[in-house]
Each structure stands twice: as C-alpha cells, then as structure tokens.
Computed example of a mutant assay.
Amino acid sequence: MIEPFRIDVPQADLDDLDERLARTRWPNEVADAGWDYGFPLARLKELAEHWRTGYDWRAHEAALNGLPHFTTEIDGQRIHFVHVRSSKPDALALVLTHGWPGSFLEFLDVIEPLSRDFHLVIPSLPGYGFSGPTHERGWDVVRIARAWARLMHRLGYRRYGAQGGDFGAAVSTALGAVAPDRVVGVHVNYLPTRPDPDADLELSASDEARLDRVRHLMANRPPYQALQAATPQTIGYALTDSPVGQLAWIAERFAQWTDPRTPVGDERMLTDVSLYWLTATAASSARLHHDAPRQTAPCPVPVGVAVFAHDITLSVRPLAERLYDIRHWSEFARGGHFAAMEVPELFAEDVRAFFLARTEDERRRP
C-alpha cells in the first residue's frame, strides 16, 4: 500500500533542539588550529547560532510539503519517497538515490529540469530521514536495490533508469544487477576505481595521479568512515544526543567534499542536518557503512559516468570499462561530491543526455 505523507515535526522536538543548542558545552581549541584538528570552532559556533536563532525549519518544512511525498512498506521497512510525474505520460521513469550524509534533499534543484522529460522517484535510503530508523541488520546496498525494484514495480513502472552518487551509486549499479530486465541504464556521479595490478593497462599520467589519490585514501581511511563502519552504534549515541555533534559530523563532509567555487549554502545544509537530527537517524544511517562492503553482482546494463573535478576520488575510465558497459563519460571542471546541489544545471543536463539516449535505444528494441 502506498500512502501520501506530509512532513509535520512536533513542536516539542523543535523546542528541544533549541534548548540543546543553547546549552552546548563547547571544547577549547588551540591557537591557529585551522583544520589541523578537525572542524574549526569559530565556524561551528557560527553555524550553531544560525541554526538556533536564524534558521526556520517550519519555512523549509512548508516548502518541502509542496512536493508529493509518499510512504510504503517494503521488506518490513517503511520507505519514504518523493514521486514527481512528468507532463509527458510516456516519459521514462528515473529512480534517484542519495548517499551519506545526504538525503532526498540532494535532488531538490534538479526536480524541475529533469521532470520535463522523466518521471522521478526519489526515495530516502532505509535508515535515513523519513525512511528510518531501521530495526534489523542486513540493509546493505543489494537489499536496498531489491527494495527499489519492488517500489518501482509497485508504482507501475515496467522499464526505468537509475541514478545515484555516493551510496546511491552503489545502490543504482546493484539495481542494474538485480533487475537487468527492468533497468535501461545506470548513471552515476561517483564511481571509485581501485588500482588493479592485473589489469595490464597503460594509463595516462592524469589517470595515474587519480590512482595515487585512491591509494592515499586506502592507506589513510577517513576517521568518520572507520567509525561508522566499525562501531556505528557507538558514534550514534553522541550524534543522537548532541545537535552540535551531529552538525559538526555532517558539516565537515560538506566543507571538505564540495568544490570551493560551488559550496552548498548553509540553509540547505542545515535542512539536511535537521533531517538527520529530527528523525534521530544518526546511528541507523551510519549502519550502511557497516553493511555496505558486501560484494555485489556485476552490473550488466549500460552505464553513464559523470566525473566532477572536486569529488573525493576521480574515476579512471580504462579501469571502469573493465567492470561496466560504459556508454557515456563526462568530465566537469566544476563541482564536487554533492554535484546535484553544487552544479544542478550541469548534473541535470548530463543525466538527461544519458537517459534520452537510452530512451532512443528502448524505441529501437524489437
């Protein structure tokens, strides 16, 4: 059963947030610390003060309720999603999947341009936001992909495309693997390519530089990732009890993963942080880092890749082509990990180009 959903956070939860922010116990900071020890104190105080005194959740809530929200239950888990139908009745449907520490909010600025040509289904990952929390182990990317296949079937879509970044990319390629007869193609804006000593490929100097960056990350696993992969429940206690802790945990990722020329605005970021806080999903969202590393089946459907210059890692095409049927590859000089929020016009046009080509392929099918 699919039911309409309206966002309506209890006022008591907003009052509690205000009181907790006002009672924040701040740590000290060494002189001239900059980013050497983590998120700078002055900047975090600025964000927290704006969250408490300048940010208006109700205004953002009202704007979000202008979208068509729904919930349904799949595999024992509530799934929240936004469903926007194109004015073109025969349009291809796309399922757009966010990652961590994002949410369905990542796609707000691309709904209008993409819905000109496509029906859009934008779910919240299990354990995230209004699809959370989860209550049992095992919600890895393959299980999520199977849930998305059931969701699209429930909505009546026989053939559709999948798009995602971060965990959304992993879910989208897994969806292509579990439902290849349904998925016309997968477009991703994050596709890690690890060094492969057995590949026997001659790579360009720029590709080797990209792999050096990957090697560095593999040798120096980011602290947030190590904690969420190993002990998501432990870090969840701190993040669920302290709004400033949740703010710092997410704001650091936005600060470090975006192109300095295309930052995500404080209002949008605070709405994302508020979504995690008000749904108490810090721990359940972190569990995906614990469960996600399981191997997935190869993705047999056509794949499109958009590489944004300031992403965490940059894909190496010769290595990607060993694993995927690459039909489309774009390189952008602007944008970072949150491309749909940072450079929505570039993101939307690349997604449109890939899936319109897939639509033409569909029309030529016997």
Results as ranks from 00 to 15, higher is better:
Pro4Glu: 13
Arg6Cys: 13
Ile7Arg: 01
Asp8Ser: 15
Pro10Trp: 06
Ala12Leu: 07
Asp16Arg: 15
Leu21His: 08
Ala22Asp: 15
Arg23Thr: 11
Pro27Leu: 07
Asn28Trp: 12
Asn28Glu: 14
Asn28Tyr: 06
Val30Met: 07
Val30Gly: 07
Val30Pro: 03
Tyr37Val: 10
Gly38Ala: 13
Phe39Trp: 12
Ala42Ile: 07
His50Leu: 11
Tyr55Phe: 15
Trp57Asp: 09
Ala59Met: 10
Asn65Cys: 07
Asn65Gln: 08
Leu67Gln: 08
Glu73Asp: 12
Ile74Trp: 02
Gly76Leu: 06
His80Thr: 13
His80Lys: 10
Val82Pro: 01
Ser86Met: 10
Lys88Ile: 13
Ser103Phe: 12
Phe107Arg: 03
Val110Met: 10
Pro113Ala: 04
Pro113Phe: 05
Leu114Ser: 04
His119Asp: 13
Leu120Glu: 03
Leu120Gln: 04
Val121Cys: 10
Ser124Glu: 15
Leu125Cys: 08
Tyr128His: 10
Glu136Phe: 00
Gly138Gln: 03
Gly138Lys: 03
Asp140Ser: 06
Ile144Ala: 00
Ala145Gln: 07
Ala145Asp: 09
Gly156Trp: 02
Ala162Gln: 05
Gly164Asp: 09
Asp166Met: 04
Asp166Lys: 02
Phe167Gly: 01
Ala170Trp: 11
Ser172Thr: 11
Thr173Met: 03
Leu175Phe: 05
Ala177Cys: 08
His187Met: 08
His187Asp: 04
Asn189Asp: 09
Pro192Asp: 11
Pro192Phe: 14
Arg194Tyr: 12
Pro195Trp: 12
Asp198Gly: 14
Ser204Asp: 08
Asp212Gln: 14
His216Gly: 00
Leu217Tyr: 13
Ala219Lys: 08
Ala229Phe: 01
Pro232Ala: 10
Pro232Tyr: 12
Gln233Lys: 11
Gln233Cys: 00
Gln233Gly: 11
Thr234Glu: 13
Ile235His: 12
Gly236Ala: 09
Tyr237Ser: 06
Leu239Trp: 01
Asp241Ser: 11
Ser242Pro: 11
Pro243Ile: 05
Val244Leu: 03
Gln246Asn: 09
Ala251Tyr: 07
Ala255Glu: 15
Gln256Trp: 00
Pro260Tyr: 09
Pro260Trp: 09
Leu270His: 05
Val273Cys: 02
Ser274Leu: 04
Ser274Ile: 05
Ser274Met: 03
Tyr276Ser: 02
Trp277Pro: 04
Ala280Phe: 00
Thr281Gly: 02
Ala282Gly: 01
Ala286Glu: 08
Ala286Ser: 15
Arg287Leu: 05
His289Gln: 10
Pro293Gly: 04
Pro293Thr: 06
Arg294Glu: 13
Arg294Phe: 03
Gln295Glu: 14
Thr296Trp: 06
Pro298Leu: 06
Pro300Leu: 07
Val301His: 06
Pro302Lys: 09
Ala309Gly: 05
Ala309Ser: 14
His310Asn: 04
Leu314His: 12
Ser315Tyr: 01
Arg317Pro: 05
Arg317Met: 07
Leu319Asp: 10
Trp329Glu: 03
Phe332Pro: 03
Ala340Tyr: 08
Arg352Gln: 14
Thr359Trp: 14
Arg365Trp: 11
Arg365Thr: 14
